[in-house]
Design a protein around this nucleic acid. Structure first.
Length: 743
DNA sequence: AGCACGCCGACT
DNA sequence: GTCGGCGTGCTC
C-alpha cells in the first residue's frame, strides 16, 4: 500500500508546514498536534502533525522517523486556541505549539551527543567508525560545517556516517549529559508568601458584593468583564470569591499576572483562600520543576494556576474562569522572539473558545479595554472605594522649573527632602520612584563637551559606577577603560543625569535616618531577588525603597506614608501612541502604593510640566477624564481601538539596500492591498527611532487597518508564496501585529 | 531559526 | 593551501 502523505509543522522553520511520508511501520496516522521526529536538512527536529497532505510536487520526499508520544500533548480546546494564535499573529504554528510546552519538552530527550566516557566506550566496542574516530582524535569534535572539506580529507566519511545513521551532533564530545534535572524543592517564591488567614473572613463591601453577584449570575458562558478598581479597592477579594464558586463547581481557574515576583498581595489572598489547590508557573522555576508543575497541571492536580504571560498555555482541563490582573500592563505583550502575541487579548480568545467568563482587572485600564467596556463588548464593573482606609492619598505636584533642586542631590527639591525626612522621622516608610529609561547617566568631557556614543547604536553610553565602565543599554556594549576623551584626549568628565544608582550614592547624606534598599532590574537580577527585596521592605527591614517601575506594582505596604515620583516627565516624548497611557498607568500605580494602612498617604510628584492634563489627572486619580481625552485623540489619529496596527520592522547591515528593500516592499504591499480589497493605510517606511541597533540599520512601516483578519490573511498567503516576502535574506523582516514596541 | 555552501581576503 | 568571516538561499 502507498504510504500516506502528511503535513508537519516545525518550530524554527518559517513555513506553514512541510510534507512527509507516514511510513507503514508506524501504524495509524497520528493525532492532531502529536509530536513526531522528522528529518529536516541534516537535522532531526521535533515536528507536530497537522493534517493529511494532498500531494507534494518536487523531489526528495522524506519520511517521519518516529512518533515521540502515543498521544498529542494538546487537547482539542488548546489546539484550536493555539491555531487561532498562529493565524492571528502571523506566526509559525510550529513555534506556537512549541512555546506552549515547558522548555524541557522542546528538545529531543535522548542525548544527541556522546559524553567523553561514552565516546571511549563506543570506540572500545567498535561502535564508532574508524574515520570518524580519527577525526575526533584529531579535533575533538566535528561541528558540521566544512563537511565538504572533511569529505575531501577523509573520503567515504559522509557516506559512512549516513549508513550508520549517525548525526553530526553525536560527535560533539565531552558535554554533560542532558538528563532531566531533579527538582530541588527549594527556592519556591510561593513559600515566601505568608497566607493571611484573616482575608478569608473579609466581608466584601457593597461595591465588591455587587461585582461578585453580577459575575456569579452568569457563569456558564463567554462573558468578558472589565473590573476597574482604584488601587486598594480590593479587586483581589472579588477574584477570590468568584474563583471559590468556580472551584465549588469542580472547574478550574487560570490567573494571569504581569510578573509573579511582584504579585505578592494577590498570591497572599489566593494562598489564604485556596491553600491546597494552587500551581505557580513562573520563569524562576528550574527546568525540571517547570516540567513537573506542567505535568501535574495536566494531570488535574491543581484547581488554580497563577502565572505570567506564558501561563496562558497552562494545560488546564475543564477551565471555568480566566482572570487577567493588571490587564493594562505592557508585559502581557510578547515582542521578541516570535510568536509575538498579546497575552491579555489571547486570554480573551481562550475564554471565548472555552465558553467561559474572563475578568480583566486594573486600576488604570488600557484604553482599548475601557472602550470595549463602554461600547458593550465587555461588562464594566467598578470599585471606587478603598475598603480598609479612610481616604485617598493626598497628591502634591512640585514644579521643577519653579523650585530648584537641593544642593545635595539634584533630584530632590526642598519640598521632597523635608517630607521624606519627616516621614522617616515618624518611623514611616517611603518609596521613591524614578523611571530611569531615557534619562540614564552619561558623561561629558569638560574640555570639549564630547559625549561618548555606542559604536553600534549611536546612543549615548550609560555610566556605571560599579566597575567604572560605560555601557550601552540597548546592545550591551561595554567600554571599561574610558579614561581619556575620544575626541580631545582630555581626562576630566562631567557626570550628567541620574539613575537609581547615582541617587543611592548620596542618599545617606541627605537622609541620615534612611535605611535604603534599591529595586531595579540590576539589583534584582538574581532569581527571586525582587521578591526578597520587597518582602524585606514590607517586613520593615528598610524604611526607604528606591526603584524603577518595579516598585509600582503589587505588594501591600501598610507602613508606607509617602511616595515620591522624582521626575514624572520621563518618557513623555517617546514616539509611541501609547506613551500617555503608559505614563498615566505608572503614576496611578505608584501613587496607589501610599497609604494602604490606616492613615491617608501622601504623594509628591516632581515634574517639569505640572500644567499637563495627564499629570494632573493622575494626581487626582481621575481615570475618566484621562480616558475621555485620550480616546478622542486616538479617534482623530485612527489609532487603536479604532484601527489595528501592523508594524513591519526591517533591519540590515547596509543602509542603502535596507532602504531599497523597504521601498520595494511598500510598493508590493500597496499593490497587494489594492488587489485584495483590504482597507488599510500604509505609513512609511521611516527610520526607526532607534535607527541603528546592535550594528543593524532599522526601518519600519506601519499599516492601520480596520480589517485585521483579512489583512493578515493576505500577508499569510504572500509569505507562503514567497520566502521572506520576496526580500533578499540579508534583510530581516519582523511583522508585529498589534504592536506595543514602537522603537 | 539554523545551517551549509560559495566567495573572498588574511595568513603561513 | 587553509582558516574564518560574510552573504545568500533552503529546509518536505
Amino acid at each position: 500500500m502507498k504510504e500516506p502523505l502528511i503535513n508537519i509543522a516545525i518550530p524554527g522553520v518559517p513555513r506553514k508546514a512541510l510534507t512527509y511520508k507516514w511510513p507503514d511501520n508506524l501504524g495509524e496516522l497520528p493525532r492532531q498536534g502529536q509530536r513526531c521526529l522528522v528529518p529536516v536538512g541534516r537535522r532531526r527536529l521535533i515536528g507536530y502533525y497537522l493534517s493529511p497532505a494532498e500531494q507534494y510536487k518536487g523531489p526528495g520526499l522524506k519520511a517521519v522517523i518516529d512518533t515521540i508520544e502515543k498521544e498529542a500533548l494538546f487537547n482539542r480546546e488548546i489546539f484550536n486556541f493555539l491555531s487561532w494564535m498562529a493565524d492571528y499573529y502571523l506566526a509559525n504554528i510550529g513555534d506556537v505549539l512549541s512555546i506552549s510546552l515547558p522548555p524541557e519538552l522542546r528538545k529531543i530527550r535522548k542525548p544527541s551527543y556522546l559524553t567523553g566516557r561514552e565516546y571511549e566506550q563506543g570506540l572500545a566496542e567498535g561502535k564508532i567508525p574508524e574515520p570518524v574516530a580519527k577525526i575526533i582524535a584529531r579535533m575533538g569534535a566535528i561541528n558540521g560545517r566544512r563537511a565538504s572539506t572533511l569529505e575531501r580529507k577523509y573520503p567515504g566519511l559522509l557516506e559512512e556516517m549516513q549508513t550508520q545513521g549517525i548525526l553530526k551532533a553525536i560527535f560533539v564530545v565531552g558535554k554533560e549529559s542532558d538528563a532531566i534535572h531533579t527538582a530541588s524543592g527549594k527556592s519556591n517564591i510561593f513559600d515566601y508568601i505568608l497566607a493571611r488567614p484573616e482575608v478569608g473572613r473579609h466581608t466584601p463591601n457593597k461595591e465588591q458584593a455587587e461585582a461578585i453577584t453580577a459575575i456569579l449570575a452568569d457563569l456558564g458562558r463567554f462573558t468578558p468583564y472589565l473590573l476597574h478598581g482604584i488601587t486598594g479597592s480590593g479587586k483581589t477579594l472579588v477574584y477570590c470569591h468568584i474563583a471559590a464558586e468556580i472551584i465549588r463547581q469542580n472547574k478550574t481557574v487560570l490567573v494571569l499576572v504581569p510578573e509573579i515576583a511582584l504579585a505578592g498581595t494577590l498570591l497572599a489572598y489566593f494562598k489564604s483562600f485556596f491553600p491546597e489547590h494552587i500551581a505557580l508557573l513562573h520563569s524562576a522555576l528550574k527546568p525540571g520543576d517547570r516540567l513537573r508543575v506542567w505535568q501535574n497541571i495536566r494531570d488535574g492536580q491543581y484547581k488554580i494556576v497563577i502565572g505570567a504571560r506564558s501561563a496562558i498555555f497552562a494545560p488546564l482541563d475543564n477551565l471555568g474562569l480566566i482572570i487577567v490582573d493588571e490587564e493594562h500592563d505592557e508585559s502581557y505583550k510578547q515582542d521578541d522572539p516570535a510568536p509575538r502575541f498579546q497575552g491579555r487579548d489571547s486570554a480573551v480568545m481562550r475564554a471565548k473558545l472555552a465558553g467561559i467568563p474572563i475578568i480583566l482587572g486594573s486600576a488604570s485600564p488600557s484604553v482599548e479595554s475601557f472602550y470595549n467596556a463602554l461600547s458593550g463588548r465587555y461588562q464594566l464593573l467598578r470599585l471606587t472605594r478603598r475598603p480598609e482606609t479612610i481616604e485617598r492619598p493626598i497628591v502634591r505636584l512640585v514644579d521643577l522649573k519653579e523650585e530648584f533642586p537641593s544642593d545635595e542631590n539634584i533630584f530632590f527639591t526642598k519640598t521632597l527632602v523635608s517630607h521624606v525626612r519627616s516621614a522617616l522621622h515618624k518611623k514611616e516608610q517611603v518609596i521613591l520612584y524614578l523611571n530611569r529609561r531615557g534619562f540614564s547617566p552619561r558623561i561629558k568631557c569638560t574640555d570639549c563637551g564630547h559625549t561618548p556614543l555606542c559604536p553600534h547604536c549611536q546612543l549615548h553610553l550609560t555610566y556605571h559606577r560599579a566597575g567604572n565602565k560605560l555601557m550601552c543599554h540597548f546592545c550591551g556594549y561595554i567600554n571599561s577603560s574610558y579614561n581619556a576623551c575620544a575626541s580631545c584626549g582630555g581626562g576630566h568628565f562631567l557626570y550628567i543625569g541620574t539613575g537609581t544608582q547615582k541617587i543611592e550614592e548620596n542618599i545617606g547624606g541627605l537622609f541620615p535616618e534612611a535605611q535604603m534598599i534599591r529595586l531595579d532590574s540590576d539589583s534584582a537580577a538574581e532569581r527571586d531577588r525582587a521578591h526578597i527585596i520587597l518582602s524585606d521592605f514590607a517586613a520593615g527591614k528598610y524604611n526607604l525603597l528606591l526603584g524603577t517601575q518595579m516598585v509600582t506594582k503589587g505588594i501591600d505596604f501598610p507602613r508606607v506614608s509617602l511616595v515620591g515620583v522624582l521626575m514624572a516627565d520621563i518618557g513623555m516624548d517617546m514616539p509611541d501612541f501609547r506613551a500617555s497611557e503608559k505614563l498615566f498607568a505608572k503614576l496611578i500605580q505608584v501613587a496607589g502604593r501610599s497609604g494602604r494602612g490606616m492613615k491617608p498617604g501622601e504623594v509628591i510628584i516632581q515634574t517639569f510640566n505640572p500644567e499637563i492634563d495627564l499629570i494632573d489627572d493622575a494626581a487626582r486619580q481621575d481615570y475618566d477624564t484621562f480616558y475621555t481625552r485620550e480616546i478622542k485623540s486616538r479617534k482623530e489619529l485612527d489609532y487603536p481601538p479604532f484601527a489595528h496596527i501592523v508594524n513591519f520592522r526591517f533591519s540590515a547591515k547596509k543602509e542603502e539596500s535596507l532602504q531599497k528593500a523597504a521601498l520595494t516592499f511598500r510598493k508590493r504591499l500597496s499593490a497587494g492591498v489594492e488587489k485584495t480589497g483590504v482597507k488599510g493605510e500604509i505609513l512609511g517606511p521611516a527610520p526607526s527611532p532607534l535607527y541603528r541597533l546592535r550594528g543593524l540599520y532599522r526601518r519600519h512601516l506601519f499599516v492601520k487597518t480596520g480589517q485585521i483578519s483579512k489583512f493578515v490573511k493576505f500577508l499569510s498567503a504572500w509569505e507562503q508564496a514567497e520566502q521572506n516576502f520576496g526580500l533578499p535574506s540579508s534583510i530581516k523582516l519582523i511583522v508585529d501585529i498589534d504592536p506595543y514596541d514602537m522603537m
